[in-house]
Amino acid sequence: MGGILGAGPGGAVVAVPAAVFAAAVGTALFFRGNLGRYGRIAGWQGQATLAVLATALAAGALAVWPLPPGADGLCAIDGGAPVLARPAALGELPGSWSTLALHIAAAAGVPAAAGALARYRYRRGFWFTLALAALIAVAVEAVQATGMLGLYPCAYRVAAVDDVLLGAAGGAAGWLLGSAAVRVLPRGWPGAVMDAMPPGLSRRLGGHLLDLVLWWYGTLLVVGVLLEAGAVAVGGAGAAHKTALVAAAVVFGLLVPLLRRDRSTPGRASMRLAVAEKGSVGPAARWRAAVRAALLYTPVTVLFVLDLHLWALLVVLIHGAPELVRRDQAGTADLVTGTRITTRTVVTGGLPGKLIRYQPSLQTGPPPQRVGN
């Protein structure tokens, strides 16, 4: 197997899967937290919530992109990219004005989006927002200055104090933009609702996509760490990754769901989805969940092990075609096993953490009379 593992130790064998895996884990935790606190993500407030996730992912991409494919020659000139600690030093770097303008737009734009959302979505004050934007900028520059926290032997991108100043300025401008948005747009913070409606197609696809990314890049990361540690030879990295793929599919695709009451894999669990029995609100029987998992994940695992990645889309098409036309949104594996995808709330109960609960007053008599002057 080529690609990342073919780079061998000292390349992107750990850095690339670590970056993607961290983004997937962060996304999963974000959805799990928001769905648990507020219930279904929908409407204008749902779009604002998704904008928060997009901004966080953009900040991560700004910090690490573009990841070098290897370390060969990376540190040959002056030990890597420099750190520009003097203000206004960015303009002295070689390159076109268009490149510099694009760099400035990215360095200020992401903190500006964070500042706007801090004011509009979270109703934060100016100084908090300014500190948040500066912290984001400092974190981005720290990742760049340390070669992605030491995963590369030296820095591969220039880190500059100018970018921190641009980030702080962008955050301040974003806060002003968010203040204007508060006045002209609907409220940005969500109200908690019961998550008992059938989950939409995008939510179910998101759970499967998270499972796929966590599975593929998680196993790449494990093999990459073993490769760097010398526990796996470069020539045997491909076989080790295939073994890891099969083991992870069995553990996280089959065993973990059988132990969980919602019968969900990690990605679908982060979306607070559950596998229920057809016509019932209870969780699917374990044998049904096991057969469903085998129908879905066995062909995908075999195709990935055989390096026929694109053919896995055929599995998606076969399973998902009935979902597009059936009112109950059942896929092929659901029809065969008598299961349906629903929300965790339907199967296990519970209310969103931010849902206002009505509690009747303990007072039994008439309300006290107000005495005026």
Results as ranks from 00 to 15, higher is better:
residue 46 G to W: 01
residue 27 T to S: 06
residue 67 L to G: 03
residue 24 A to Q: 00
residue 93 L to S: 07
residue 49 T to Q: 10
residue 22 A to K: 07
residue 56 A to H: 14
residue 52 V to K: 05
residue 72 D to Y: 15
residue 76 A to D: 13
residue 10 G to W: 04
residue 102 L to A: 15
residue 22 A to P: 12
residue 102 L to D: 11
residue 51 A to E: 04
residue 64 V to Q: 01
residue 74 L to T: 08
residue 95 G to C: 11
residue 30 F to A: 00
residue 70 G to D: 14
residue 41 I to W: 00
residue 54 A to H: 09
residue 67 L to R: 04
residue 65 W to Y: 13
residue 20 V to A: 07
residue 15 A to G: 05
residue 102 L to C: 11
residue 52 V to T: 13
residue 93 L to R: 13
residue 41 I to Q: 00
residue 73 G to Y: 05
residue 29 L to D: 04
residue 95 G to S: 10
residue 55 T to W: 03
residue 23 A to I: 01
residue 10 G to S: 11
residue 54 A to S: 09
residue 38 Y to H: 04
residue 98 S to M: 14
residue 74 L to H: 00
residue 81 A to K: 10
residue 91 G to Q: 08
residue 60 G to N: 09
residue 53 L to K: 06
residue 19 A to F: 10
residue 29 L to R: 12
residue 38 Y to L: 10
residue 89 A to T: 06
residue 71 A to L: 07
residue 33 G to H: 09
residue 77 I to R: 12
residue 62 L to F: 13
residue 22 A to E: 08
residue 92 E to T: 14
residue 35 L to E: 00
residue 91 G to F: 08
residue 15 A to R: 01
residue 72 D to W: 15
residue 93 L to A: 07
residue 28 A to F: 05
residue 40 R to Q: 07
residue 65 W to P: 07
residue 84 L to Q: 11
residue 86 R to W: 15
residue 9 P to N: 05
residue 43 G to K: 01
residue 79 G to W: 09
residue 34 N to M: 10
residue 44 W to M: 14
residue 98 S to Q: 15
residue 22 A to Y: 09
residue 56 A to R: 07
